[in-house]
Amino acid sequence: MTSNVSRRSLLALGAGLGATTLLGGSAQARAPKLGTQSPYWHRFNLGSAEVTVVSDGPLPLGPPKGTFIGVPDDEVKKMLSDNFLSPDNIVLEQNSPIVNMGDKLVLFDTGMGTSKAFGPTTGRQQKSMAEAGIKPADIDAVVFSHAHIDHIGGVVGEDGKPLFPNAQYYIAQSDFDYWTDEGKMGSPLKDFVVHARKNLLPVRDRLVYFKDGQEFLPGVQALAAPGHTVGHHIFMVTSEGKSFAFLGDLSHHSVLLLEKPRMEFSYDTDPKQAAATRVKMLDMLAANKTPVMSYHFAWPGYGHVAKAGEGFHYYPEPMQMVL
């Protein structure tokens, strides 16, 4: 009974004195707002390997109209709103796993680099790596899912010199040839070609071309997933029987292109082929219950896909904060 009386008395006292008096006589919080965010990296284990996800920062695409095609605009906006996402600005993340296999440190994709084609929030991969305690000189291998501007942009710095001085670089030859082709400089692809040439030509003598199905690094297997680009690949990353698939740009959006995987995406080189590839690969990953990491899903982009009606559903993995 005493505790109830004490609590009632306290509440009455609070009502009589006013909340500000109880909180120290000021309606203002004494501590200043900090305005800072946690570092942009996350770490987890995969078998005996250690995976560190680093971010190149958010990449805003703007309104979905004209970018996500084949479904009425109102329906696309409703899909976003129903999932508590902005219907007016699609914001993608840029999640790069760095896998420490013990004998090799492997980075997948390098972000926008110095290009600000999608605004000022991109280009922070080097900062994220520093926050995570990883030195660029320690990277042994840089693996590209494809040669688009937001995946190969962080190979060289402002001075045009390679940022990963000791790495070998791995890509599909068809993608390298397509996106470094000078003959495309007069086309709408010009900015992408300029950026690819700027980043890939300085490391041309360190490029290794992988093939579909090849385990080109210990524990890293390439799987052709064409359509988004001619040589787009996803990768199965395996250590001691544990695996995840790095999806690159198999799907840019965890709602739109999973719920309606045959929706088309305007940045695809061949949208119809990309949609067919997306369905085929997601079917396989869902059936095998293989964990996935998508470059563009909400941070840190790691989870599972499962069949849901005509499409799929993405289940983010809870972030494990104890290794």
Rank of each mutant, 00 (worst) to 15 (best):
G14A: 15
E215S: 05
S38H: 09
T290E: 04
G183S: 07
F297D: 00
G153I: 01
M319K: 13
L10R: 13
F312L: 07
P165H: 04
K65R: 14
K280R: 15
G160F: 13
P39T: 06
R8G: 02
F176V: 07
D191I: 08
D150G: 05
H313K: 14
H228T: 04
S239I: 14
Q125E: 07
G35E: 11
K198E: 14
V237D: 10
A12G: 15
P87F: 11
A276I: 11
S174Q: 14
M321A: 09
A132V: 11
G119C: 01
V99S: 00
I90Y: 00
H148Y: 15
E259I: 06
P32Q: 01
F297L: 00
T20P: 13
F216K: 05
D82H: 05
D103R: 10
G186C: 08
E310G: 13
G311M: 09
S81G: 09
W41M: 04
I171S: 05
S115I: 09
G24S: 10
F265Y: 12
G227R: 01
T36D: 07
V203T: 02
L34A: 11
M281L: 14
K260Y: 12
N4I: 11
K190A: 14
P60A: 05
M129Y: 10
K116E: 03
H252W: 03
I98V: 13
K135G: 02
A31L: 15
A27F: 12
E93G: 03
S81K: 08
D150P: 04
A286L: 11
M281N: 08
T2K: 09
A224T: 04
T20S: 15
A276G: 08
G231M: 12
M263P: 02
S86Y: 03
F108H: 04
R124A: 00
I152E: 01
G66C: 05
D150S: 10
